[in-house]
């Protein structure tokens, strides 16, 4: 019992240390030219804001899609909640395991829809992230709909990504839809004091030039 509580304590300290690894105010820069600033960070969720000041609430569970999105001036957006399945049951001890879950999206104007996801944990591996070898968790998630008449799965999108527990960030993402394929990598993570307009804009300009 004592050992178990010690373990739990150690895990909590560890997750606290991990959560503190990226301080609030840090700016993440991605290879596609996207930038996001960390606005809020708790043990359960992180709030990121992009350069259009759109806020994204993300779970610490990387397989869950954005929990909430809100546009700055219009206030438009949506909330997403798990209505079926146990996405938290996909643990990092069992590579290859699948989990299916349903997400309900409610938009700012009350429109409701349900999205089906099937995610698989692929295992851990070492990847070069921000010029440093880091251990990442690999996942593959597929979004699908069920055909009304035939009841078979209809493919919507696939996301294959690497998640760094240390940074609390998806560091490499490949997204495939029926129409296009996109990919992006984390290329810079600026601490709050370094995230000036001059520095961020120069980085982004350089990335967009290369596209």
């Amino acid at each position: 019992m004592h050992r178990r509580s010690l373990m739990a304590g150690a895990l909590m300290v560890l997750s606290g240390a991990l959560a503190a690894a990226v301080p609030v105010g840090s700016v993440a820069v991605y290879s596609d030219g996207d930038v996001e600033k960390l606005i809020e960070s708790t043990a359960q969720r992180k709030v990121w804001e992009d350069d259009r000041k759109r806020r994204y609430v993300r779970s610490v569970n990387p397989i869950l899609p954005v929990l909430e999105r809100k546009d700055f001036l219009s206030g438009r957006g949506y909330r997403q909640t798990v209505v079926k399945g146990q996405p938290d049951s996909l643990d990092s001890l069992n590579p290859g395991r699948h989990v299916e879950f349903s997400i309900q999206r409610v938009t700012h104007d009350g429109h409701t829809s349900v999205r089906e996801w099937d995610c698989q944990y692929l295992g851990k591996r070492q990847e070069s992230v921000l010029s440093k070898g880091r251990m990442v968790q690999r996942y593959s998630c597929e979004r699908f709909t069920i055909h009304r008449k035939l009841h078979n799965r209809v493919f919507r999108e696939r996301r294959e990504f690497s998640y760094s527990e240390e940074l609390g960030l998806v560091v490499d993402l490949n997204r495939t839809t029926a129409k296009k394929k996109t990919s992006r990598k984390l290329v810079a993570l600026l601490p709050p004091k370094s995230a000036s307009y001059k520095k961020v804009s120069a980085l982004v300009r350089e990335l967009r030039k290369g596209q």
């Binding site: 700016v27 930038v35 600033k37 804001e49 350069d51 000041k53 995230a195 000036s196 307009y197 961020v200 804009s201 982004v204």
Partner: peptide, 13 residues
């Protein structure tokens, strides 16, 4: 601002 001041934010600056 109606008083002629302009407050601008770009990339959080």
């Amino acid at each position: 601002h109606p008083n002629g001041q302009a407050l601008q934010e770009r990339l959080w600056t």
